[in-house]
């Protein structure tokens, strides 16, 4: 349903230009949960912002259900990392969730009902009348997820959604995403720098190289559902996949890595140019 072809993006012009995306090809099928991992500064957010129509790519095509994307698509929701700035502090939790629904042509009553339902789905039925800043970080991110659910998008983008919460909350929210995806049959593209998270959540993990980012490799995740924070993570397959993804993220060659020769060459070139900068995981 999502088709990204040879996407390139360069910030600025002339000698100061920074090429963030160096030709990305990516496909996401209907109902799939794809995780994109890459080292810090690899242009992961640039990729997400391009798909969301927040920036115009320098080159390449983005299609959703065979429709070329030039502006923000109408049925796309984003969960941002910075929940405290993505929820509006002057509105209650319910108003935040219901706000985008006006566009869906629902009347006030239907909007409230939809918001209540979505908040219920993320376990926040009791928080409708509260303000976002009265809630903990994890709960605020739940509200942001509820807003995305209520919006009923065909594609949900998540930009390091759990980057600013503690470990325990993070696990809860990961399981929430899996639940939401199952209950609402969502197609999700999730961006993260956390290798474990990408393997735990994804049907497929796409690894980006350092900037200018290309797809360094793709790994299908054939772990059984339902996934469990303890049991899944101790499966030999999980441990193996995590290592594979880790190698790809660090740009180390490995016989099992299904990257093409050209891409590996580009990667090697990149490393030699940028010196021995350690890639953050």
């Amino acid at each position: 349903m999502l088709d990204v072809v040879n996407l390139r993006h360069t910030y600025g012009e002339g000698p100061k230009a920074h090429q963030a995306l160096g030709g990305i090809d990516l496909k996401v099928s209907e109902g799939e949960l794809v995780c994109v991992v890459g080292p810090s500064g690899a242009g992961k957010s640039t990729l997400l912002r391009s798909i969301a129509g927040l920036i115009k790519p320098t080159e390449g095509h983005i299609r959703i259900r065979d429709t070329e994307i030039t502006d923000t698509p109408g049925d796309l929701a984003v969960v941002f990392q910075d929940y405290s700035r993505s929820l509006f502090p002057w509105m209650t939790v319910e108003e935040n969730v219901a706000l985008p629904l006006r566009r869906r042509g629902q009347d006030r009553k239907a909007r409230r009902a939809a918001a209540g339902e979505a908040l219920n789905a993320v376990g926040l039925a009791g928080a409708t009348g509260k303000y976002p800043w009265e809630l903990s970080g994890g709960m605020q991110q739940r509200v942001a997820i509820a807003r995305a659910i209520a919006y009923r998008p065909s594609l949900m983008l998540m930009d390091e959604p759990f980057g600013s919460v503690d470990a325990q909350t993070r696990e809860d929210l990961e399981d929430l995403v899996l639940q939401v995806r199952k209950d609402h049959r969502m197609t999700i593209l999730l961006i993260t720098h956390d290798i474990d998270e990408s393997v735990y959540l994804g049907d497929r993990v796409v690894v980006l190289s350092k900037a200018p980012a290309r797809v360094a490799g793709e790994l299908p995740v054939n772990l059984p559902f339902p996934r469990d924070q303890i049991a899944t993570r101790e499966l030999p397959a999980f441990v193996h996949l995590r290592a594979e993804v880790g190698r790809l993220v660090r740009g180390k060659e490995h016989p099992a890595a299904p990257a093409t020769e050209e891409e590996n060459l580009a990667d090697a070139e990149d490393t030699s140019r940028s010196g021995e900068r350690p890639a953050a995981g």
Binding site: G53, T72, G74, F80, R85, S86
Partner: peptide, 25 residues
């Protein structure tokens, strides 16, 4: 920036942007 991005992504109408986002912020 994130307020503006959120408003754009969720396709808020012009009136909503004015009265619900820009004015309160």
């Amino acid at each position: 920036g994130t307020y503006a991005d959120t408003a754009k992504v969720f396709g808020l109408t012009r009136a909503q942007r004015f009265f619900r986002i820009i004015l309160p912020s």
